[in-house]
Nucleic acid binder design. Sequence first.
RNA 1: GCUCCAAUAGUCCAAUUGGUAGAGACGGCACGCUUAGAACGUGCGCGAUCCAGGUUCGAAUCCUGGUUGGAGCACCA
Length: 882
Amino acid sequence: MTSERYNARDAEPRWQREWDEKAIFSARNDDPRPKYYVLEMFPYPSGRIHIGHVRNYTLGDVLARYMRAKGFNVLHPMGWDAFGLPAENAAIERKVAPKAWTYDNIAAMKKQLRSIGLSLDWSREFATCDPSYYRHQQKLFLDFLRAGLVERESRKVNWDPVDMTVLANEQVIDGRGWRSGAVVEQREMNQWVFKITKYSQELLDALDTLDRWPDKVRLMQRNWIGRSEGLLVRFALDPATAPAGETELKIFTTRHDTLFGAKFMAIAADHPLALAAAAKNPDLAAFITEIKRIGTAQEAIDTAEKQGFDTGIRAIHPFDPSWRLPVYVANFVLMEYGTGAIFGCPAHDQRDLDFVNKYGLGNTPVVCPEGQDPKTFVITDVAYDGDGRMINSRFLDGMTIEQAKEEVAKRLETEVRGNAPVAQRQVNFRLRDWGISRQRYWGCPIPVIHCEKCGVVPAPDTQLPVTLPEDATFDRPGNALDHHPTWKHVACPKCAGKAQRETDTMDTFVDSSWYFARFTDPWNAQAPTTRPVVDRMMPVDQYIGGVEHAILHLLYSRFFVRAMKATGHIAMEEPFAGMFTQGMVVHETYQKADGSYVTPAEVTVETGSNGRRAVLTATGEEVTIGSIEKMSKSKKNTVDPDDIIATYGADVARWFMLSDSPPDRDVIWSDERVQGASRFVQRLWRVVNEAADIAKAAPATRPADFGPEATALRKAAHSALDKVSGGIERLHFNVCLAHIREFTNALADTLAKGGRPAADLAPNLVPDLVWAVREAALILVQLIAPMMPHLAEECWQVLGQSGLVSEADWPQIERDLLVEDSVTLVVQVNGKKRGDVTVPRAAENPEIETAVLALDAVKQALGGKAVRKVIVVPMRIVNVVG
RNA sequence: GCUCCAAUAGUCCAAUUGGUAGAGACGGCACGCUUAGAACGUGCGCGAUCCAGGUUCGAAUCCUGGUUGGAGCACCA
């Protein structure tokens, strides 16, 4: 018997070396077994891993190790999402080259990742900033360009005039650049865009096939794509009021049923008609300038009041030539959606109602809710957007909304004005094409050349990769690529004349939109993918990451794979067959009396009879325990994975991450519970060592019969095996851990009942029980192996097993042990529990009924009333209805 | 504002998807052990499953309405 504590600091590096030397986690592309691809979202090399990474990668590792034991050829790779702004900021602030900074960080983080004991295939590692990766991305870009999936477009962008760069919407805070603080301008710029909207409908429809994705994520994508069916209507303009001879105004609506409730038309500030009118009206021009200025600040948009300006233009109602509607320029109409123009029906749209109430245009209800009297139904401050019957709508009166929509569409699409129908049915999407141009150095260069004579010329394949210059300087704002003295000057591949390289680089979301495919064959120097390999190893069977990527990253990847299919790089459409969004790691916050935050490492929490209090460990000063929040540097409520692993070991960190909270929910980091995990590690170590001492006496062959004690232990073992297997497959790791602890308790009980010390006892034990103890201990170790692989290896060795538990096959379940000979059914009378009855497993309903009705408790509860019905739920319950 | 999700013991969470509310842990209390020791072992679980209705033989689970908390989108016509 070993009385030594389990020493994680000694064991963990030892087993990590062992796995490494034997390269047991390398997947082979020619392995004939069925494949299983587990992938966690790859990290940005910020410098240190975060506790959230530990959770993310532990979740994936449990699955990878389990599937490996189940006999799959598991692909579980890791890499680095290595392009991006922080490297350039480091270059500016610390005078270190982005490349050096990035690769140093990768080296540091890789060391940290290794200390977690993840079963990763490091032979496939790459960083997206490796030219050997991005050269293929450039190739994909050029293939997409040829296929019409990339275009150059003039687009409105957020421009930071100080940093001289385009900002993403998230980088604009209160209308100012997040770094420079300069007021952000809206500029029209030429941008490269991926034509993701060509796949709007497909990306939407295919969501229904992704049955192993969270509903939440699918819903978010559905809303993001934002399909709406409506009608495109051409309103004629009163020629006397048109500023420059315009004849019509096109609008898009989904509520054409409410056309008779129209009170006004509204157009966006940058609508051509608005610009034409502004040219003749200085007041209108001033108004447009004003609302465009507000338009840049995201905050202002949220709270801005509805504002409009009457252009003087009058539109003619499509069903009544004598009905004129005023055309306003309004700040709530977006040029980017639909046609940039609407008709306003205030009674049934809140925005329109706010607008008319401000400008005194009135409203007419045209949909009356069921049960309301149309004569008294009025709208004042709240628009009605529910169901009902049409009123005040001439030929539509009495129809449902759907009938009215159909009638309006039918009439207007058959009416012709100037060789075209007045209206046509149209489907609109909220989804926009994906602008990928970034005025940044540290990104994948866009492989095109601008020639004064030939225009945009793709870089020839032979010139790939177009690499970043390593001697760029960061001493002034703007794009370092553009500033570089020589890099952009090249000869035109077509005419050999003077030309310039594109100095924009790609959005880093491009890098992460296909890395999962590259992992299948990162060694291919000739092409992005190797067809037979990528077609066999993809899709990713289980992808795991944070919900913050639920929309953009996942949608872009889904688009990218479709584009890769269209250009012959892959056979499938959907990259991720299974998707899982894990919760965050959160922690309570601690504040000193002066309001400043202190880290958990500086604090000692004491639990007394009147609750918990926290003091500074160094000084004893009392600190306030604050709310539980996402770990952040500003709140200082972070824990460092290195500290945890140094103190408790990786297995404890892993076990803690998996316990209690379901993986898709936030987990509260709690020192008490981490210590609980640590105590379990020691307890398991003791139990296994004790079992190992007994197991030495186990007979070599399986006994023919097992006594009751042995059978009970075997049932506990195989039941745990069954539940844990199922739990892992459904990613219910917290429940798996509960079953493992339950089984550990059962094994410990059996050992304790035999008496102590165990060594004296072994010879007295009957062989069947000794054999069962050995079996139980082995199963237990295999069950914990996916979660605590180092401890499992150590235990495996103690149990005298040769080889590695990481390479062992998952134990076979003996299903016979899971079925009981007799079952105990709960007996209810009128839904209330009155007792129970134990019957043979095979008992038929009539015998069960007889047995139940014979119970005294049942007779008493019935109180002489006749039995009306007896409901027998097999294996569970009997309900007597009296 | 719109859409969606959640709510079970002091705390974190289970409940085979409509069948006995309790698996596991944290904390607490009691007892034991007296050295595996900032441990270890044993024991202790009445909470109208957030509230009000409804469906059902039977509801934590399904339906309706609310309360509280969270998430996403945000003038999308």
